[in-house]
C-alpha cells in the first residue's frame, strides 16, 4: 500500500518560503495498491493530486473525514469532477439533519463557489458511510466516529495484511483527566489498533494545548501516547498548525523524541512524500 501525502497542513493553506519542506496544503492523502486508488479528504492538496491522475483512472473514490472547510476546500478544484467520462464516488459521514450531498452543496454552490454540485459533468455518487465495514475494490474499510467537533469519522483501511489508520482531526484525550488508559474507553483505538501506519492529528504543542482544549485536536505528546496505546508500527504526524514553519516543526519533533524512546517509528511526512506499508 503506497500512501502519498498531498496536503498535511491543518486549518488553512499556508504556502510560503518558510513552509517549503513540509508543505502548506490542507489534508489530502492518496492510497494506492496497483491500479486501485483511494483519496482521503479534499483539502487544497487534492488539486495537485487531481492533475497527477490525468488519464490514469476513470473511477475515483474520495473519502471525507468530515466537512470542515480545510478538508473539502479543494474539492471544487479536483479535475475529475469536470470530466464527463469520470465516475466519482464521494463518501462521508451521515449528519444528524441533512443528507451528505445537501451539506456538501452548501460549499459547492453560489455564493461560496460558482458551480453547483448538480452541475458537475462527471458521474457523481455521494455515499454516507455505513456503520459496518465495507469494501471499495479490494480495500476493506471501517469508518467510525471519533472525538472532534461536528460529526467526524476516522478510517481504518486494510488491503491484505497492510493497515492504514487515518485520524486527521482527533482529540482522544479530551476530558480524560489522566485516568487509566483503558483502550476500551479511548476514541479511535479500534481504528488505529496495530496499524502499519497511523496518520494522526498533531496540531498543537504540549504547551499550547491547555488553551485549545475542546477544539478537536491533539498535541504532540498526546498523539505519541495514543500511538503507543494503539500499538501502531509507524506514526505520521499530520494536520500541522498553519502558523508553524518548517524549522519549528523539526525542532518540536526532535524535542519530543528526546523526551522518550518510542516503540514505533515516527515522522513528519513532507508534502509529496510516499510511505509504503
Amino acid at each position: 500500500m503506497n500512501v502519498t501525502f498531498w496536503g498535511t497542513r491543518g486549518s488553512l493553506p499556508c504556502s510560503g518560503p518558510d513552509t517549503q519542506i513540509y508543505g502548506g496544503n490542507t489534508p489530502c492523502v492518496g492510497v494506492s495498491v496497483g491500479e486501485e486508488l483511494l483519496i482521503l479528504d479534499a483539502g487544497s492538496g487534492i488539486r495537485r493530486l487531481g492533475i497527477s491522475l490525468k488519464g490514469k483512472y476513470s473511477t475515483f473514490h474520495l473519502l471525507l473525514s468530515h466537512l470542515h472547510m480545510d478538508h473539502i476546500q479543494g474539492m471544487g478544484f479536483f479535475l475529475p469532477l469536470y470530466d464527463p467520462k469520470a465516475e466519482v464516488h464521494i463518501y462521508g459521514p451521515a449528519g444528524h439533519s441533512a443528507p451528505l450531498i445537501d451539506r456538501l452543496s452548501r460549499y459547492l454552490s453560489p455564493p461560496l463557489f460558482p458551480i453547483r454540485i448538480r452541475e458537475l459533468p462527471c458521474r457523481l455518487f455521494v455515499h454516507e458511510v455505513p456503520a459496518r465495514p465495507f469494501n471499495i475494490g479490494s480495500f476493506r474499510i471501517v469508518a467510525q466516529r471519533v472525538i472532534h467537533p461536528g460529526v467526524t469519522i476516522g478510517y481504518r483501511i486494510q488491503h491484505g495484511h497492510s493497515v492504514l489508520a487515518y485520524l486527521p482531526d482527533h482529540e482522544p484525550m479530551l476530558g480524560a483527566n489522566g485516568r487509566p488508559k483503558d483502550p476500551a474507553w479511548l476514541s479511535g483505538h479500534d481504528l488505529a489498533y496495530q496499524a502499519g501506519l497511523l496518520i494522526h492529528d498533531a496540531q498543537f504543542t504540549d504547551e499550547e494545548y491547555p488553551r485549545f482544549v475542546g477544539w478537536g485536536h491533539s498535541c504532540l505528546g498526546q498523539t505519541l501516547e495514543f500511538a503507543r496505546l494503539a500499538e501502531v508500527r509507524q506514526l505520521a504526524l499530520f494536520h500541522h498548525d498553519p502558523g508553524r514553519d518548517d524549522l519549528q516543526m523539526e525542532a518540536l519533533f526532535q524535542q519530543a523524541l528526546a523526551k522518550q524512546a518510542l516503540p514505533f517509528g515516527a515522522s513528519i511526512p513532507k508534502e509529496g512524500e510516499i510511505l509504503v506499508i
Partner: peptide
C-alpha cells in the same frame, strides 16, 4: 473492542 463514541 472500544465502546461507541456516545459512551466514551
Amino acid at each position: 473492542a472500544a465502546y461507541p463514541l456516545e459512551l466514551i
